[in-house]
Structure formats: C-alpha cells, structure tokens
C-alpha cells in the first residue's frame, strides 16, 4: 500500500483546490498558516509558488490561530489550512478570536469522516464540528466538489465581515472514498 492511499490528495481533474487559491487571491489573503494535509497539497503548492503570499508551516495548528491574530493586528488578512485532527489542537487558542473579535478563517480537510481507513482519525473527525462550534466558530460543510468554492468564499467573507473564527469543513467524500482495492 502506498502512503498516498492512506491520506488522499485531490485527483488531477479536481478543480476545487485551484478555486480555493483563486478565492484567497480575490480576498487579498496575504498570510497562509498551515500544517500540511494531502487534501490541501495542491493548494499549498500554489501558495508556496506565490511571492505575494507569506506561507508559514506550523509545528502545531494552534500556532496558526495566534498568527492570524498577529496578522490582523498589523492589517494582514490570513487563513489557516489544516486537517480535522488539527482542530483539536486549537481549542483553547480559539478563545483569542472571540476575546479580540479577530477574523480567523479556517479551511479544514476532513478525516475520519467518510470511508476512513485509519481508526485513529475517527474520534477527532467525529468531534471536529462540535468542537469548533463549542468555541464559537461558524462552521459550514462542503461534501460535494462543486460546494467547496462557494462554502470557502462564505467562510472567508463571514470571518472578515463579522470578525470571528469561521471554518469550512471539506468532507472526506470530496476527496473520494478510498476502497484500497476492495471495490
């Protein structure tokens, strides 16, 4: 079994990663904080290739929440890219966004959500939306490829128009259910 079968990147034919990149550009996103996920791999490559974006690879996702506050203090718009497991690392840090009323858009690729292979992904994947909402984040899901761009657009708009943490959860189904040769 190849590693990429465990954590699936979008098919080459998928257009939604490029649509997210285009949205980051149109919204003037300048700081991109991330912990890598295969689902975000193409988007990350696009951001790294863009000299007008500052891409910061974090050691843990909560660093990204703090970085988004710093960015906004200085007038930069930022976004946090992560996998659903990383949401759990952000819980207490999300209080910063509520306390300070800071725009904090997050784009989360789901694991443990649809056709998951790895049992360790299921507990946090099952709790991702609950945890975010418990900490005051507005959460919207995209479970079809055509829903990704409008949902991310709404997430970024809601963050910067209403000053709070917001998140799009990109369902594992969007990345394609994995069957590991059993179909």
């Amino acid at each position: 079994m190849q590693a990429e079968q465990l954590d699936k990147a979008p098919d080459d034919a998928a257009t939604w990663p490029d649509q997210i990149y285009d949205l980051l550009k149109s919204h003037g996103i300048r700081q991109v904080a991330l912990v890598p996920d295969a689902g975000h791999s193409r988007l990350i490559r696009r951001c790294l290739a863009d000299d007008s974006m500052q891409v910061v690879t974090l050691t843990t996702e909560e660093e990204g929440i703090a970085m988004l506050l710093g960015a906004w203090l200085g007038g930069d718009k930022g976004v946090l890219l992560m996998q659903s497991s990383g949401v759990g690392n952000c819980i207490n840090m999300l209080s910063l966004g509520i306390l300070h009323r800071t725009p904090m858009p997050m784009i989360v690729t789901m694991r443990g959500d649809f056709g998951e292979f790895n049992p360790a992904q299921v507990p946090m994947g099952s709790a991702t939306q609950t945890v975010l909402e418990a900490m005051g984040t507005i959460v919207r899901r995209a479970d079809r490829p055509e829903d990704v761009a409008p949902t991310v657009n709404a997430t970024i708009r809601m963050a910067f128009n209403t000053f709070r943490p917001t998140a799009t959860l990109i369902g594992q189904r969007v990345l394609g259910a994995k069957t590991f040769g059993k179909d």
């Binding site: 910061v56 660093e63 703090a66 970085m67 710093g70 203090l73 306390l99």
Partner: peptide, 16 residues
C-alpha cells in the same frame, strides 16, 4: 489568555 500564543502573535504582526 491564549497561553503559548505570544511569540506567534508576534510573528504574524512582524510579517504584516
């Protein structure tokens, strides 16, 4: 609050 956040807030601000 946000214990552990200070340095990373500084990073985002210094980039901006």
């Amino acid at each position: 609050g946000g214990m552990g956040a200070a340095a990373m807030i500084g990073l985002g601000l210094s980039i901006a």
